[in-house]
Design a protein around this nucleic acid. Structure first.
Length: 190
DNA sequence: GCAGTGATCATA
DNA sequence: ATGATCACTGCC
């Protein structure tokens, strides 16, 4: 079973298709001489300008212009005066959609569960300098497929979008069931 | 439960 | 220029 980098094609689909497919994929972050690995276990899809929970609802702005690019670019933005949030743009050029990466398992000799999008960027040392860059090795941040199979995926409403009316209720948050079991196995592997 | 923190967007 | 809001976190 090889470890292949996800190609641009993977991200050209709709955000609600890409988001569950990202579960079990590995986010790879190279910073200096260190390489960090995070198995993605929680994502959310943001669909387009009609999605009233999405930044795309404002049309194209200085912040969100990256969402209008074709799939496979990073969209990183700053919220609440403190936190960077990491998204991967999805879809064809001009369709402003993206997937927010919200949770994962950080691999180390004591692998741990990182639950929350602001914590992910903190541990992986990600900030706005990556926004607009492609998901490729040369960017220092990319996604690989290690052949990890996710059998059971839970769908639930997205977090923190209560202002968006009916869009707050849509099941666009995707999580891996039995995360603690996976964590245990990954920890024992070392 | 809610304070912290500052960019962003709407309004003007 | 101003003010409300925010795809959050950590501590009460």
């Amino acid at each position: 079973m090889g470890k292949s980098i996800l190609s641009k094609k993977f991200f050209l689909d709709k955000a609600n298709t890409v988001a569950p497919k990202l579960l079990g994929k590995t986010l790879v972050r190279k910073v200096g001489s260190r390489t960090l690995y995070l198995i993605i276990i929680e994502t959310e899809a943001y669909l387009g300008s009609h999605d009233l929970a999405s930044h795309a609802r404002f049309g194209k702005t200085k912040r969100n212009y990256v969402m209008f690019k074709d799939g496979g670019h990073w969209y990183v933005y700053f919220v609440y005066g403190m936190h960077w949030l990491l998204n991967i743009v999805t879809g064809k050029i001009g369709s402003p959609s993206a997937v927010l990466i919200r949770g994962g398992i950080l691999l180390s000799k004591n692998s741990r569960w990182i639950d929350g999008p602001g914590k992910i960027t903190k541990v992986l040392k990600i900030n706005g300098s990556l926004t607009g860059r492609p998901s490729l090795k040369k960017s220092g941040l990319w996604i690989e497929d290690w052949g990890i199979r996710i059998e059971r995926i839970k769908k639930s409403p997205r977090i923190g979008v209560g202002y968006s009316g009916k869009w707050a209720k849509k099941l666009l948050r995707f999580t891996v069931k039995d995360v603690s079991g996976r964590l245990k196995r990954l920890t024992q592997r070392t």
